[in-house]
Every structure is written in C-alpha cells, then in structure tokens.
Write a protein that binds this DNA or RNA. Structure first.
Length: 509
RNA sequence: GCCGCGUUGGUCAAGGGGUUAAGACGUCUCCCUUUCACGGAGAAAUCACGGGUUCGAAUCCCGUACGUGGUACCA
C-alpha cells in the first residue's frame, strides 16, 4: 500500500443554452486556476441534457471563449480523453442503468404522474403560506408512482409505454451534513427537500443524476459551481451515498454569486447600464437578439481574466494586477469569499486601461487594427500604426478608444470643435497661422523639433504666447481637445497633410 | 411561506479579540501639462441593527433586519 500523489481533476460543465456571462466565466476561471495550481487536469463536460434548450452554435461559442481567454483544456468533446464521451446527450444509456440501480435498492421510484396531474397537485396543495408545494415524502404517498401502485400495475403501465420519470426517495427525517471548501460545514434536513426527478421521461438524466454519475466516472476530485447549487447539494450527497461511491465523492466548493447594480446580474443589466455581461458577443439564432461581449467592447482577455479573478478572491496582498500565470501560482481556494460581489464596470475599465498600458505595441497591433477597420480607417502601414499605438496607448481605456486617439493620424478629422478656437480667435492669430503654413512649406527638415522651433520663433516675432496658439493648432490637426503633443502629431502626419489641415480650418473660420 | 447562503466606505476588499480599521476603483481638491490622458500629493466616506460573552468586540455567541439563491421532467 502506498499513497498516490494528489492528482486533481476539475471539470467545468457549461450548458449550451446561450452566451457565457460573468458568473459563468468566473466559475470556469476558478476551476481552471485551481486545476493548474495543483498541476492537475482540466476537463470540459457539456451539459446538453435538455435538448429543447439547446441552442445552435452555443457549444462552439464556449470553445471560442476558452480560446480567446487562452485557457487550455485537457479533455473535452474536442480534445478526446480517456473518459469520454463528454456530451451528456452521448452518454444517455449510462444514466438509465444507474437510475434503475437506485430503484432496485429502494432509493428511487418510478413516477407516472402527467404534467397535468402535477399541476393539479400543486394547485390543490397551494396555500397562502406555501405558494410552491413540493413533491416530497408527504405528497408522494398520494401520487401515481411505484411506491403506491402494485408490482403488476407498474408492469402494466410499463408495457403500455406510459411515460414515467425516476425520482429519488428522500428520507423523511435525517440531517445531512457536508463540508464545503469555501463555507465550511453545511447541513440540511432531508424531509424539507423534495423528491427530485433523476431521469426524465425522454430518458435523459437531469443535472442531479448526470453530475454525480459523470463526476464519478470521470474521476473528478474537486467540483466548483455557483452558489445557486447549494440547495440541491443534499440530493447529490445522497446519490453518492446510495450509489455506493461516497468515499470517492469530490470536494465541493460553492462560489458566491456576481450581482449587478440591482440584484442578480442579468444580460438585461447590460443593455440597461451600458456594459457587457457576456464574454464575447452572442447572437441568439432564435431571437436574433445580440448581447454585447467584453471582447467586442474592447477588453483585453488578460484584463477580463484579471478583473474577474479579483471579484471574489485576492491573495491577501495589495497586488491587483495579475497575469494568468501569476493567478495560477497564487490562487488558493481558502481565499475565495463567501459573500457575493457586485460587479463594478468602472473598475473593470480600470483593469483594462492598466493592461493596455503594460501591453506592448507589437501585441496590441493586431487587436487594435480590427477596431480601426470597423471605423473605416484603412491601415496600410503597420509600422506607423505601431508607433502611434505606443504614443497614445496610455490614453486608451478600451481598445475601441484607439479609433479616436489614433484615427486622426490616418485620416483628416471629419468634425472640428471650432467653438474651442472661436472663443479666443483674433485676426492676429489668423495671420500667424497663414504665415506659419508658409514657413512649414519651406522647412527642409521635417522633425518635431524643427516644427516646434519654427512655431515658437514666429510666435515670438508676433508677440503672441505660444500656449495660446497651441490649442487652435491642436483642433486644426486632430479636430478636438485630445491626443498627444501637437508637434509630435504634425511630425507624424507629414508636411503636406499638416499644412492642408491648417488651411482647411482657416477657411472654415 | 419554507429552506440554504451571505452582510467591513458608493464598489472591490485587507484585517478574524486590543489597529490612528490597509489598499484599489469611483468622487472631490491641488501639482505636472496652456488639449486629453499618464504621473504625483491630498480630502471626504465604512465595520447592517439589537442583545450577550469579555477588562476589551469589526472580529466569538444569539436574535432581528436586509440582500441573495433554491423550492421545474432548467441548468
């Protein structure tokens, strides 16, 4: 006998029903960080047990997200491993076997109640103080199931292919306790939990059965999921016990929720408050509704990951900026919070700004270009764009900000903030710029030093403070009150363009 | 209704019996810069409430309030 070194296997199990929202990505991220921190494996299982909710393209979307974020998967439908298949729909026959085993052992039963009968039961038992009656140990005695029917009655129903589900038989009076890695000991009274459906009438398992069977067969050691699963934990615990696998049950951790400005974060919040909720754009093929993503909004994946990781975890130091590798290195489950966190878009923007500042122009270039192209700014010279990115990146919070901050280097402004000039405009200033254009045309060396020297010389000769002329000059070159130093801009856009833009604005005044 | 989980500035949060209760975002003021940023200095702002335990409670215990989740043949 010897002890194996700890081998961690963690799974993320998205359901392909739409985009991936903040909470989902964070669960994914924490799963990933934990697995990598322990040198373990990260596997992806797809929960597509409900075919009616399955959305075309949603599975690919999940993989695209993983790719964008740079998270590698060890096993999944697309990266086969030893425990496949990894889609629940492809594992269908497996579940029936275990469900029957539970029935045989008396821990589950067949229920033939139709949706109408269930509705009737709920209606009949609904009271003022109990608006949602459960199919529990009290109610099950009055329903059409194998606990109340005789063996031959059940057989007959089966022979007629009557639709049925398999429900777990919750004990009437037991206290179940388990340990949550984040919250500590939690206990539930079994009599208060309903007889959850394990196998649906279409033969597909519910999440409850599938998660237990798959985690067992896939040898999962740690299972992290959202807090919304806490109330069904007793059902899962019982299944592990009844199936005889309790000593192989993974360690559980329930992650706190991410809240929006008013309550639970929903994709509606995005539209309402003007920030993305999904990782990447998600266009629902059924409704054609588009939900904006962080990627398209102009976030760097590094910043998105960083921001999300810090929403519910920190390493106890003042460090806030972490690369993925640093996160992997310092991530500890013990430091994940119990309380839910409210998402703050301003802080998310700050993370992105910091990441843009620390990312090289080389790396930024291919990410910025699509935003320029989208705004119909053609980039023929990548090298020039790279120089400009370096020059303006500290003024950009989102990648989309490069359009405003760098666009005027490639294309004359479409609109000019003329009011900023007109406020203090004088004939002397007009005269200054007319002469300045002449001087520029005669400048033999086009460098920012020469341009600036020429500008200041002329200003001195006319006894106008150079400072008073810089703002008009800026408006002429970029259109508004933004951008880097004016002479630097003039240097980069070239002599002809500089003169053209000045003359153009002079004609407008 | 019942059950679960939670609660440190507006937000993210450190601190887990003795602290002037860190830090960051945001806000405001000032400096730098005659643009916008970046950078620098500073300010306002917090232990949900009520009871215990203790010499001493943000910290431990019990209530209450509030928030949030579950209570589906959804995950």
């Amino acid at each position: 006998m010897y002890l194996c070194p700890m081998s961690v296997r963690v799974r993320f199990a998205p359901s392909p029903t739409g985009g991936l929202h903040l909470g989902g990505v964070r669960t994914l991220l924490y799963n990933y960080l934990f697995a990598r921190h322990h040198g373990g494996q990260f596997i992806l299982r797809i929960e597509d047990t409900d075919q009616s909710r399955f959305v075309q393209g949603a599975e690919e979307y999940i993989f695209d997200c993983l790719k964008w974020l740079g998270l590698e998967i060890d096993e999944s439908p697309y990266h086969e491993g030893d425990y496949g298949p990894y889609r629940q729909s492809e594992r269908k026959p497996l579940y029936r076997e275990y469900a029957d085993q539970l029935v045989q052992a008396g821990h589950a039963y067949y229920a033939f109640d139709t949706p109408e009968e269930l509705e009737k039961m709920r209606e009949a038992n609904k009271t003022e103080e109990n608006p949602s009656p459960q199919y529990d140990h009290r109610i099950r005695k009055k329903m059409r199931n194998s606990l109340n029917l005789t063996g031959s009655e059940v057989d007959a129903l089966m022979k007629e292919n009557t639709p049925f589900v398999i429900r777990i038989k919750m004990p009437e009076n037991e206290i179940l306790s388990f340990r949550d890695e984040i919250r500590g000991d939690i206990s539930f009274e079994t009599g208060l939990v309903d007889d959850k459906v394990l196998l649906k009438a279409d033969g597909m398992p519910t999440y409850h059965l599938a998660v237990v069977v798959d985690d067992y067969l896939m040898k999962i050691t740690h299972a992290f999921r959202g807090e919304e699963w806490l109330p069904s934990a007793p059902v899962h615990l019982l299944l592990w016990r009844y199936l005889g696998w309790e000593n192989q049950m993974p360690k559980w951790a329930h992650l706190p929720l991410i809240l929006g400005p008013s309550g639970k974060l929903s994709k509606r919040d995005g539209a309402k408050y003007g920030f993305p909720v999904y990782a990447m754009n998600w266009a629902d093929p059924r409704t054609e509704e588009l939900t904006e993503g962080f990627r398209e909004k102009g976030f760097l994946p590094e910043a998105f990951i960083n921001m999300l990781a810090m929403l519910g975890w920190n390493n106890g130091t003042e460090q806030e900026l972490f690369s993925l590798d640093e996160l992997i290195q310092s991530f500890e489950l013990e430091r994940v919070h119990r309380g839910s966190a409210k998402f703050d878009y301003e802080k998310a923007r700050w993370f992105n700004q910091e990441w843009i500042k620390k990312t090289s122009a080389d790396h930024l270039l291919p990410l910025v270009k699509p935003f320029m192209t989208k705004s119909e700014i053609n980039i023929e010279d990548d090298k020039k764009l790279k120089t400009i990115i370096e020059l303006v990146k500290e003024r950009c919070v989102l990648l989309s900000d490069f359009v405003q901050q760098a666009g005027f280097f490639f294309r004359a402004p479409v609109e000019y903030d003329l009011s900023a000039i007109q406020a203090k405009w004088t004939p002397e200033k007009k005269d200054f710029f007319q002469h300045f254009c002449l001087r520029l045309n005669n400048l033999e060396e086009w460098t920012l030093q020469k341009i600036e020297a020429s500008f200041k010389e002329l200003a001195e000769a006319r006894s106008i403070k150079p400072g008073e002329l810089q703002l008009p000059m800026r408006i002429m070159l970029v259109g508004g009150k933004f951008g880097p130093a004016v002479f630097e801009i003039a240097g980069l856009i070239g002599k002809e363009e500089t003169v053209r833009r000045i003359e153009n604005v002079l004609s407008l005044l």
